[in-house]
């Protein structure tokens, strides 16, 4: 079996670009111009009104990653918790247990500090935004459009600036809670995170300080 473009210069370029972008992608400066941000604010305010806002939140997640070189999606599942200080606990149970904790600028994986290339902060930003209704933060990285009249509502995020080199777009769906995040990446890769059994409050074992 031969992987698409393996050994070819296109793969090298793609690989190099991925590394280069993640080295600088989350630095400030690539976010949305203010004029665009202003036009998206009514939509986000409207969406914010539809959300059940909570101090803390927990639930189950299932993550699929479709990769062009794999026939089966790359899959993991577990449960998550967001606490009132904005910390995220992401407990993977299947296929192999691991625990990611995101707090302020620090991210740990199974107790060891790890380099966050921005993904941890981005997911935390999105999830916390939908939990407390502070969706303005999305405008730092995306232009926003959507259809809020249907159920579940759909929000389309188009990355602006350097993030567009690694993400083609993000689609969010939900009702009173965020239910689904779909991230489209270059070269047909796609990540889907689905949330279920979402409920307010975090159990004591979900505390991010653990």
């Amino acid at each position: 079996m031969r992987f698409p473009g393996q050994g070819a210069s296109s793969t090298i370029r793609q690989f190099a670009l991925g590394i280069a972008v993640t080295l600088v992608v989350m630095a400030p400066g690539g976010a949305l111009p203010r004029a665009l941000a202003a036009s998206a604010e009514p939509l986000l305010n409207q969406l914010s009104d539809r959300l059940l806002l909570r101090e803390s939140l927990s639930g189950q997640f299932r993550q699929y990653k479709h990769l062009p070189f794999l026939e089966q999606p790359f899959e993991s599942s577990g449960h998550f918790a967001l606490d009132d200080a904005g910390g995220l606990r992401w407990q993977v149970e299947q296929p192999m247990p691991s625990l990611m904790l995101v707090r302020d600028d620090s991210v740990t994986l199974d107790g060891k500090p790890v380099k966050d290339r921005g993904t941890g902060q981005l997911i935390t930003l999105i999830m916390r935004g939908f939990m407390v209704g502070e969706l303005d933060g999305l405008l730092r990285y995306f232009s926003v459009s959507g259809d809020l009249d249907r159920t579940p509502w759909v929000l389309e995020l188009k990355p602006t600036g350097r993030l567009s080199a690694v993400i083609r777009g993000v689609t969010l769906q939900g009702d009173t809670y965020l239910q689904r995040i779909e991230i489209l990446e270059p070269e047909s890769a796609q990540t889907v995170i689905e949330f279920c059994d979402v409920h307010p409050g975090a159990t004591p074992q979900d505390a991010v300080e653990d």
Partner: peptide, 10 residues
């Protein structure tokens, strides 16, 4: 483990 976490997606 890292690849299965959201951090490893890219």
């Amino acid at each position: 483990q890292y690849l299965h976490s959201p951090l490893g997606a890219s």
